[in-house]
């Protein structure tokens, strides 16, 4: 049997917002550290470090995760999406548009994570009910907005993204 690698540091490669990246990581690095410190993608925020606030939410292989609770080595070969990937060639994503239009932002610190949870939801459930929206963002704490305008924005975005319904 082939010897399995024991790594302290390792050069890993994965995809971020459609771009292939290679980063040297250590065993104690978390995905959020790689994104913020090594790749300088600072849109992803850290609020608690224990997966309770959701400010660090990114989409990993299609599902929303707390990047503060993902060991960086598990990112190898994965597909990661962060808030920086939403805008395409200078055009806001419909979710971003809806957040802007519905005043769904106050201090903005939870916003990137909130957008990623919302995006993950709308991809698998293009027309969620308000309750489904609330559940989908229940792991993203917001202290400013009381959530109502965020939920309205996500509901509106679902219609903008799929106007056929």
């Amino acid at each position: 049997m082939k010897q399995v690698d024991r790594c302290k540091m390792k050069l890993i490669s994965f995809t971020v917002n459609g771009t292939d990246v290679k980063v040297e990581i250590s065993a104690s690095d978390r995905l959020i550290d790689v994104l913020r410190d090594k790749l300088r993608l600072t849109g992803t925020k850290e609020g608690c470090g224990i997966g309770e606030c959701g400010a660090c939410t990114v989409i990993m292989n299609g599902v929303p995760v707390n990047s503060c609770l993902v060991p960086a080595f598990q990112a190898e070969g994965s597909v990661i999406e962060t808030v920086e990937g939403l805008e395409q060639s200078g055009k806001l994503h419909p979710l971003q548009e809806a957040f802007v239009d519905h005043a769904a932002i106050q201090c903005g610190f939870c916003t990137p994570g909130m957008l990623m949870s919302a995006l993950a939801l709308l991809r698998e459930n293009p027309h969620p009910t308000r309750e489904e929206i609330a559940r989908a963002i229940s792991g993203n704490l917001c202290r400013c907005t009381g959530y109502h305008q965020i939920i309205e924005a996500i509901e509106d975005a679902s219609m903008r993204m799929d106007p056929t319904e």
Binding site: M1, V4, K8, A27
Partner: peptide, 18 residues
């Protein structure tokens, strides 16, 4: 503290490591 990490690909490899 963490010395390093190991990522086995199969249960067989995993049991060897363990």
């Amino acid at each position: 503290m963490t010395l390093g990490f190991i990522r086995p690909k199969t249960v067989g490899e995993l049991l060897e490591v363990l």
